[in-house]
Design a protein around this nucleic acid. Structure first.
Lengths: 183, 183
DNA sequence: TTAAAACATGTCATTAATTACACGTTTTAA
DNA sequence: TTAAAACGTGTAATTAATGACATGTTTTAA
């Protein structure tokens, strides 16, 4: 079942909150949703066309300034229904995380491999930075209890991502400590 | 830089351990390496041809039984060099995990959404099963201290995957407990 | 002995995704 | 005032990946 085109559901999910242009949707992937999903505008515009052909969204043209045409997309009732169905349906496939570092590690045969320790150091630095970044985001996006309740799912996944990174950093640390001091 | 064709490196990594046929490589994705990376034979055979065209591998034909031809692939010196370079090079891109459940969660706005609790239960069941599966694998594949040392990288990533799943299950559990009892 | 399962190797069609190409408008700051 | 940055919408070429199509051999177990 391939990647099952999740982009269509992300677009529907975002349009379900408010009408947006293709450009707005593209920006959304640079901001919050970009933390855990990526898409380029070259993928978004054709997908908008397909969703509209299928009747899941519609658009109205608005003029910005003197003549710049913007297409503001709205979700339709059937689109909202499709979104609801997707969320309600089971999610039984735990997609294996394609982590390139983990893949490389698989080919390291012994703890004496000189490439191992530098690899672990690099990853510890990267994941420590990522953790700090996510913690800063949580503080910025959800500063109050009320804000957490207002957008509960988003709050949960940010929290989850922080916990995941914290685990990753901790595992790297423990692994570094467990490696015999060479020679 | 797209997906950067990691399959080629996986093939090189496996051939670096011992000569294998396309079929053997396909099987490897059903077993150990399949825990964290997927590939079908329809992707593997063309990739073998490309790697051979580029001089990174060669093959010899052997006859199995009366006339069944098997192509046994070997890594070349330049292939081994390419593999080494890939492993030694930095791995600075932390690929965002495309977890469909997390994506759905993003669109859940409040803790009273009736879809939320069933979703969390399903994921808890799935990740609990996955955790048990990985723990069983660890016991089976690495029963002794010696076996862990013999294939250290593989041991590390299995351990890592177990820790990751344990964290996931724990987070789901905590999240379920934190949700107000409705109504 | 015979049928199913496993072994073995390929191609083709389609979809998903990235990068690059392409064009034009509006706003903002030097 | 003018140039850069941001806004805004598309297409084309290429690559990666899946699922289906296609064919044949060998081994194993009923």
């Amino acid at each position: 079942m391939a990647q099952k085109n999740k982009l269509q559901f992300i677009i529907l999910g975002l349009l379900n909150q408010q009408p947006l242009t293709g450009y707005d949707l593209t920006k959304a992937f640079d901001n919050e949703i970009g933390e855990f999903w990526q898409a380029q505008h070259s993928q978004i515009y054709p997908q908008l066309k397909r969703l509209e052909d299928q009747g899941y969204i519609t658009h109205e043209v608005t003029i910005s300034g003197a003549k710049l045409e913007k297409k503001l997309y709205h979700i339709t009732a059937t689109g909202a229904q499709l979104l609801h169905t997707w969320i309600s349906d089971g999610t039984p496939d735990l997609t294996a995380t394609k982590d390139e570092f983990i893949l490389k590690l698989y080919f390291i045969r012994t703890s004496r491999d000189p490439r191992l320790v530098p690899m672990l150091y690099e990853q510890r630095r990267l994941h420590t930075d990522k953790l700090a970044h996510l913690q800063a985001r949580l503080k910025m996006v959800f500063p109050t209890k009320a804000s957490q309740t207002e957008n509960y799912g988003h709050y949960l996944i940010l929290q989850h991502a922080i916990g995941r990174e914290a685990y990753y950093v901790n595992w790297l640390q423990q692994t570094l400590l467990a490696i015999p001091k060479a020679r």
